[in-house]
Amino acid sequence: SAVANPEQYIKHPLQNRWALWYFKNDKSKSWTENLRLIAKFDTVEDFWALYNHIQQPSKLGYGCDYCLFKDGIKPMWEDDRNKLGGRWLMTLNKQQRHNDLDRYWMETLLCLIGESFDEASDDVCGAVVNVRPKGDKLAIWTGNCQNRDAIMTIGQQYKERLNIPSKALIGYQSHDDTSSKSGSTTKNMYTV
């Protein structure tokens, strides 16, 4: 009589439970009304069940976002776990919607759920993809813009995972600076 192998029937637990949110830009509704929780998951298997079931970012309409955040953190600056933080921001050109967007977003998700940034993963709050006519954006949000070491570790490893050439710089901006900016650009606190 065989002993069952747990590998065959136990799902693989993630370090964190994650929540996937969807934002659809309906101008007749408020920002918070447009933000919907899709589902939460905390195993590798349940992540793929969800990922394989939903549209890729390149298929979303303009003004739509996906946000993947640790359970309990809302995908907004105002959340207590975000308000002192900031984001590594990647701005894509129009051509990259077809070439890179979906692949980059999947890599971003795998970095988060796999805790790819080692101890610095504790600083990660979530990730956001914005689908916009001028160019799509990808970001990893972290909880405290003063945690330089963790932020630099995340930025360097993220850039490596996405195969971004080393001469192409990406910047980290605090949410405080982003929310209070007067022009169209926000200053970078860090770059890699």
Partner: peptide, 20 residues
């Protein structure tokens, strides 16, 4: 310790049959 999964391990589950 932290439950870390590398990219290839995670990808190997994308098209697995559902758990029974």
């Amino acid at each position: 310790g932290k439950k870390q999964y590398n990219r290839d391990f995670l990808l190997s589950f994308q098209f697995m049959p559902a758990c029974v």
